[in-house]
Design a protein around this nucleic acid. Structure first.
Lengths: 228, 228
DNA sequence: GGTCGATGTCATCAGATGATGACAACCGGA
DNA sequence: TCCGGTTGTCATCATCTGATGACATCGACC
């Protein structure tokens, strides 16, 4: 099996969400907002699966059903499109307290990578082929959205070295996510998501629990920091 | 009294390991084995730092002090050179029981990435820009060298789901290694290696210990599976 | 000294890629 | 209907990259 994540097929350039408040202009063939959205969506998918360099703008245009030259018009260039994809990916992650508690985080990250592949954010992190701006953008997203809330929860429970432990936990989590979605090994790829999440949560809970609670690591379902 | 044929050692691509059984041909300026070795070494460094696509053969030749066209002559093409780099990296890792016990594994992997960057093997794993052959080669190396011994140790201690747990632990470990060497977050990058290894080993030990021993996860120094 | 294979150097090709600008098609309003 | 801006299409450029082959240089052997 290829390391490139094979995800569900995309729909066409329709179904674009119009967030700029423009009136619908129903049934219009020429729709800049829709084209832009289709490009962004295709970019999210392809960048998320193959990374920056390996994805060509022609490919993005083809998947979006739109001429690739429009990328330059709407996003400036390929790198800026990547940043836009990172931002979009991050915005899509704002669930209702989606990232609260280690078990939640694990389940969300694993689930998302199961459905859509690694995603542009982590691709930007693990590859050196992106510009510094892209990496900084991606890093800030993860730090602010996952690491910091987790570290705060832990600090509130008087965990020593909370920030460091949170960083380690998140890094480990991304390694596991990568190993699964890229098919590094056999079992981690085929194990049901729930079982994987349980095992991972169990292990990482050791890192995130307050000093005295180490013995309770066995209960994986509700384990973690501040789940609830 | 100076016998001339003990000629001055020229800096650059000397110190080649001659495995083809050719006679030494002392002091020869034109030395295919040395050139090949220099290319391989440069390839290990550059592929390990930047990955496959981002590294150009001209760059490798420049670092090796050798014309890049020799890559085609000695290795066939760029992809085969990558495979050679993976094999060389793997062979370099055969220390005396270097990968025995989780603490050992953690220390070795972190240490190596601290010194030399991620390395070509993990680069091949995390990126999709390499050919399937390269990925398979890299995957086999890690599976055979790290995951399987670890899983066997665990199985010998009657750990349930040993193989899966070993895969998870190794994946997590690579995530941490990546996070540190690529500088994802602040503290994981700057923390002393010993402290990081202790924390990581502590957490992963939960995964690798037999069912009843979960309480002993605190002793990080000797923790792990079959250390010593 | 001469020959020949091994080794190294160089120029160049073909393909891919990101970017750009000219041009065409479309739409809404005057 | 006519006009001007918007949107989409296309051809093309400059660059980079891996690969290839011709040629030069070296060293061993006769």
């Amino acid at each position: 099996m290829s390391a490139e994540y094979a995800g569900p097929e995309h729909a066409g350039p329709e179904a674009a969400a119009r967030e700029d408040g423009a009136r619908p202009r129903a049934g219009r063939a020429r729709d800049a907002a829709a084209s832009k959205q289709a490009l962004l969506r295709a970019a999210q998918e392809l960048f998320g699966q193959k990374g920056f360099e390996r994805t060509t703008i022609r490919e993005i245009g083809e998947r979006a059903g739109v001429d690739a030259a429009l990328i330059a018009r709407y996003f400036g260039n390929k790198a800026e499109l990547y940043v836009a994809a990172v931002v979009a990916e991050d915005n899509a992650a704002r669930g209702p307290a989606e990232f609260r508690g280690l078990a939640q985080i694990t389940d969300t990250l694993v689930g998302r990578s199961d459905e859509r592949g690694p995603g542009p954010i982590i691709q930007a992190l693990i590859r050196s082929d992106t510009s510094p701006e892209i990496r900084v953008a991606a890093r800030d997203r993860i730090a602010g959205r996952i690491v910091e809330p987790l570290a705060e929860d832990m600090a509130a429970q008087h965990v020593d070295r909370a920030r460091l432990r949170a960083e380690i936990a998140v890094s480990a989590l991304y390694g596991i996510t990568l190993g699964r979605s890229l098919g590094w090994f056999e079992e981690i790829r085929s194990v049901p998501r729930a079982e994987l999440v349980a095992l991972v949560t169990e292990a990482l809970t050791t890192l995130t629990l307050p000093p005295g609670d180490a013995g309770g690591a066995g209960e994986t379902g509700e384990a973690g920091t501040g789940a609830g």
